[in-house]
Design a protein around this nucleic acid. Sequence first.
DNA 1: TGTGCATCCTCTAGCCGCTAGAGGATCAAG
DNA 2: CTTGATCCTCTAGCGGCTAGAGGATGCACA
Lengths: 148, 148
Amino acid sequence: MPAHTIGKLAKATDVKIPTIRFYEQIGLLPEPDRTESDRRVYDDKAVRRLAFIKHARQLGFPIDAIRILLDLSDHPDRACDDANALAQDQLTAVEAKIAKLQALRAELQRMVDAGCQGQAAECRVIETLADHSLCQHDHATPERMARV
Amino acid sequence: MPAHTIGKLAKATDVKIPTIRFYEQIGLLPEPDRTESDRRVYDDKAVRRLAFIKHARQLGFPIDAIRILLDLSDHPDRACDDANALAQDQLTAVEAKIAKLQALRAELQRMVDAGCQGQAAECRVIETLADHSLCQHDHATPERMARV
DNA sequence: TGTGCATCCTCTAGCCGCTAGAGGATCAAG
DNA sequence: CTTGATCCTCTAGCGGCTAGAGGATGCACA
């Protein structure tokens, strides 16, 4: 089982070193063995686990969902209903975000198209911001998006 | 000029009271007058300014951009190039986010479609997360998204 | 005139998911 | 033996709020 320093693990997975330590701190990654001088030592299992986490984060799964997914991955005998549900939730969330962003894009596009030269007094961008009634969409307050 | 309490301002603009105080603290809203007992008193100008801020936030403009936009709005004699540029930047950012989310949606859709019954060992969701090579898209690390 | 609830005040801490930096120890190559 | 890369822990900061403690007013109704 080849051993890696934290730096190698970081390179292998393209995850930054402080992020790896952060994942350890919040319990996503187990505490690794240490050398005599207290340096972390990782094996290939850690590489796979971190790659799993990274992939899930790229897909926008929140940390708590990843905890559950990792747990399932660790226990292949369990029912995977939770994994399906989480993926479905995430899909729904992503679709909602897309819909919202498309409405925003439409309005921004109108603002940009109407963009003026000259003074702020006649600026359509400013004007649009100042007067919501100029909007066509009812872009509701966006919810928190964390990372996508 | 009708005067409002912070509560009325909050209702008029649909912005929460702590958020109003927060905007004041970071200098987006000017410090309002106070009553003898130290309560904030707002006029209609404050309502308009807060509505402007809210609208810009809904469109995803970051606070620093809003500072500039407010400043332009306060000085109608200035050139509005900055406003146009900020709107264009925001449009570009939103388009990039949409593109990224659409790639994520596609992969999540495949995961969900392949969703299994039974044990995690055969779960396509888990499997896909564990093995990035099963993905079709090269969904890069998402950048920070703040609010939409 | 009391009373009781709504609203306001300030202050601090927390959310998510990292990221950055200080200040120091250790390793590995030349 | 030196030098520079890498590692360690710890704390604080990012954006944009949000929540809660603990207390002071304001206002309607009896």
